[in-house]
């Protein structure tokens, strides 16, 4: 029973991270129509930045968010404007943009990863911030994990409000549903797409900062996070924020259960198994909205 609660709690924390980064990806893919394979690399960049904030400047990594988030937003906005806009202009239809963006961001993946490898090498990094044990109903969790979950929830909530309560957010949702109609309503879809892409980038950066507080990471790990975010997005239904939340939590719990009960080396296998099951049973994602 205690083990079960342990798994549930750790799974929820991990799953919260997955949900957060999947929300960012669903913005990039659902609104900007960019299938970003280099997504996870930006998570790792943020993790290293947080590491630098804590070890180099001796500040709380959460304070680092104040600088890291706007910076990530700006960098991703530039990536969209410089690297991806030519592809958007060139694409005759959505399928072509998908193929081109997969290829371009696949290249970007190796560039960013290569730079990280030159700077940090292949070894694992971690730092110990607020690793104070907390007792929750008999389960012991570190403060940093709990705090990461709370901050993730807060960020997710702010994003939710931004999308549902503001003009810019409404424009973004309109573009996600139907770019042609959105344009007819006077929405500048290029601007909305760039904003959504940049927002997605800022969200994944926040995920990187939070994850670095309690997980070890290295320069080559981005791909795994991209993979998991993609799978959560597909499971939840593209563009569906609530879907990403539920699917993310589910994946976190399933992974933690297998890591605790079977073998930590099989977590990716669990991810894939879940992916296949969802594809076979509900190809449109858990919440019914078709993926395209």
């Amino acid at each position: 029973m205690a083990l079960l609660f342990d798994i549930l709690l750790s799974g929820l924390i991990l799953g919260g991270m997955y949900a957060l980064i999947a929300i960012g990806l669903t913005l990039q893919y659902g609104v900007a129509r960019i299938m970003n394979l280099s997504y996870g690399e930006f998570l790792i960049v943020a993790a290293f930045s947080a590491f630098f904030v804590y070890s180099g400047l001796a500040m709380s990594p959460l304070l680092g968010l104040i600088v890291i988030l706007p910076l990530a937003f700006a960098v991703n906005w530039l990536v969209y404007q410089i690297l991806l806009t030519p592809l958007v202009r060139r694409a005759k239809n959505r399928d072509m943009l998908e193929v081109d963006s997969i290829l371009a961001t696949f290249g970007l993946l190796f560039v960013v990863q290569g730079i990280l490898l030159v700077m940090f090498g292949g070894q694992y990094y971690s730092y110990s911030y607020l690793s104070v044990p907390v007792d929750i109903f008999g389960s012991v969790v570190a403060w940093n994990r709990l705090l990461a979950l709370l901050v993730a929830l807060a960020i997710g909530f702010v994003v939710y409000l931004l999308l549902t309560r503001t003009r810019q957010g409404t424009a973004i949702r309109a573009v996600a549903v139907n770019p042609v109609s959105a344009e007819l309503c006077g929405i500048n879809i290029g601007k909305a797409a760039a904003f959504a892409f940049a927002l997605g980038g800022a969200i994944v950066a926040s995920g990187g900062v939070l994850i670095s507080m309690f997980l070890t990471f290295n320069a080559a790990m981005g791909v795994v996070f991209t993979m998991k975010a993609l799978i959560v997005v597909i499971m939840g239904g593209v563009g569906n924020i609530m879907g990403a939340l539920v699917a993310g939590l589910l994946l976190g719990i399933a992974e933690t259960a297998v890591a605790r009960l079977v073998d930590p080396g099989l977590t990716l296998a669990v991810t894939f198994a879940l992916f296949i099951i969802v594809l076979l049973v509900r190809p449109t994602g858990l919440f019914g909205r078709p993926a395209r």
Binding site: M35, V224, L230, I231, G265, A269
Partner: peptide, 24 residues
């Protein structure tokens, strides 16, 4: 059986999955 994007995503992680399984 499904649209192309699922295949791409799956193939993206396939090498990593098989590597993990073989290592295990």
């Amino acid at each position: 059986r499904l649209s192309g994007i699922y295949f791409v995503i799956f193939s993206f992680g396939l090498a990593e999955l098989i590597r993990q399984l073989v290592t295990w």
